[in-house]
């Protein structure tokens, strides 16, 4: 995977000597701003809480961010193409309910397989209504958000459904780091590669910036957006399985409000609501900022109700920042 990166970087540097500085000058401040915010939060919580600055707590932050991150990676790609998936929380809970209810009477591998298919299926449904029927993604996925939350309650009968011998996501194979963090890292890396170094990723940027140009250049926009939703569904299924494993049960209320966390991380990371811009690295930084904030607030004994307030405020802040950026760059 490192090979194409190695070959392009030096060439870009030597070939376009005039270009690289301009490109960097534009991109660095954005990511740098996020890094500064992250460090500032880290310093603040290190001073205010004696429990913040240690290895175990960092692992905690990453673990808490893992599922959101797994779902935020494809969501970044979708938003770059100008699309939303609000159904992620419900869909994750639904996949969890599917695996837990099937596992009562079936082989666990079979149950997991069906749950993953369910996630992909939800992606197919979203993709179908957005690209084939032509309904706005916001409305489509708001609909599927309700539908799959409801179906989750139907499957679980509104009760938490326990699952036996499904604790894989709580295992810590290396360096005391739990499995979901590794999955998160793998998925983030895969999407980073896809967004930067593949035709698929490049097409998503073009679709988001100028759908007409994309079409005139022969890009099959609908097919690509459809694939984006399916990828989102797949990652949501993985997220749902992790949540179910961590809890040892499928809860009908699992991952409620996940869409808020995901959208906040993606927008905070520099993606624009208007489409056409954003990056996986930015989203990951956004995610770490949210994770650190939540973690720090818990350590400071701030009520979890206030965390929800903080998250909502952060979303509005991030979107305002995006608007400001649009106004400044359009000059």
């Amino acid at each position: 995977m490192s090979d194409p990166v190695m070959t392009t970087e030096p060439a870009a540097a030597s070939g376009a000597t005039a270009a690289v500085p301009t490109a960097r000058r534009r991109q660095v401040p954005e990511t740098a701003a996020l890094v500064v915010v992250l460090i500032a939060l880290g310093v603040f919580f290190s001073i205010t809480s004696e429990f913040f600055l240690n290895y175990d707590n960092f692992v905690n932050i990453l673990t808490a961010a893992a599922v959101t991150g797994i779902i935020a990676a494809p969501a970044t790609m979708l938003l770059i193409a100008g699309q939303f998936d609000l159904s992620v929380g419900s869909a994750a809970a639904f996949c969890g309910a599917v695996v837990a209810s099937l596992a009562l009477h079936n082989d666990i591998y079979y149950s997991v397989f069906i749950a993953v298919l369910a996630g992909i299926g939800i992606g197919v449904i979203n993709g179908f209504f957005v690209t084939v029927v032509g309904i706005n993604a916001l409305i489509t996925t708001l609909g599927t958000l309700a539908v799959f939350r409801g179906l989750t309650q139907v499957i679980t009968d509104g009760q938490t459904l326990g699952i036996e011998r499904f604790g894989w996501a709580t295992e810590r194979p290396i360096l005391d780091i739990p499995v979901p963090v590794f999955i998160f890292a793998g998925i983030a890396l895969a999407f980073w590669f896809i967004s930067r170094y593949t035709v698929f990723g490049r097409s998503m940027y073009a679709i988001g910036a100028n759908p007409v140009a994309a079409r005139l250049n022969g890009i099959r926009s609908k097919r690509i957006i459809f694939a984006g939703f399916v990828l989102s569904g797949l990652c949501v299924a993985i997220g749902g399985l992790i949540l179910t494993s961590q809890l040892g049960a499928a809860s009908p209320q699992a991952a409620t409000g996940m869409e808020l966390s995901v959208v906040t991380a993606v927008i905070l990371g520099g993606a624009s609501l208007a489409g056409g811009r954003g990056a996986i690295t930015g989203t990951m930084l956004g995610l770490l900022i949210i994770g650190t904030l939540n973690n720090g607030l818990v350590l400071l004994n701030v009520s979890s109700f206030w965390q929800t307030v903080a998250q909502g405020a952060l979303l509005i802040f991030a979107v305002s920042f995006d608007q400001l950026r649009i106004r400044l760059t359009s000059k």
Partner: peptide, 9 residues
Amino acid sequence: DLALADNLD
């Protein structure tokens, strides 16, 4: 309308 994507180089 040029069919260019502004965000790309």
